[in-house]
């Protein structure tokens, strides 16, 4: 399931909805990303998340489908917020559920790694020097590439 929204989410409620009534699930793994108040050595105030409506949903659905093809998953969830966010705010939630823990852990990690390099979101941070677009990190590309090497 994919959701792109401005409003906050409730982790407990979202996970309960995801697994409700499915007693084949033995393991559920989730990751929540939060807005930091520092970028390197610079203080950061609020940030604004821009995205590409239409392509965002398409990209997230593709990432979800790839995870489902790779592991025996019973349920997956991606929630990403857009608009203005403050330090400490929740920004993203990914979750994967499977019969056993290993697939749930791996798929959850895979979902967030691919989201960071494929989904069309851009962060604009408020800094003491004015608004600044966040640069992409090479370490994110490397994290994604790791999944492309045969195990």
């Amino acid at each position: 399931m994919i959701r792109v929204q401005e409003h906050d989410f409730d982790l407990g409620q979202a996970l309960k909805l995801l697994t409700d009534g499915n007693h084949g699930i033995g393991g559920l793994c989730s990751f929540v990303g939060l807005v930091r108040d520092m970028a390197g050595d610079a203080a950061v105030g609020a940030m604004t998340l821009e995205h590409y409506p239409g392509m965002t949903e398409k990209a997230l659905e593709e990432i979800e489908a790839e995870a489902c093809a790779r592991w025996p998953l019973q349920a997956t969830l991606i929630v990403h917020r857009v608009g203005k966010l403050e330090p400490g705010d929740q920004i993203v939630l990914v979750a994967a559920a499977s019969a056993h823990r290993e697939a749930a852990f791996d798929a959850c990690h895979y979902l967030i790694d691919f989201l960071k390099t494929r989904a069309p979101f851009w962060k604009l941070e408020d800094t003491p020097d004015g608004p600044k677009w966040v640069d992409a990190r090479n370490s994110d590309d490397e994290a994604t590439r790791r999944w492309m090497t045969p195990a």
Partner: peptide, 24 residues
Amino acid sequence: SHVALDHPVKDGDEIAFFPPVTGG
């Protein structure tokens, strides 16, 4: 869909240009 520089473009396409993505 993400494409490389050699991807064809034709009438009717929706083409987007943007910086490397920074979500998550």
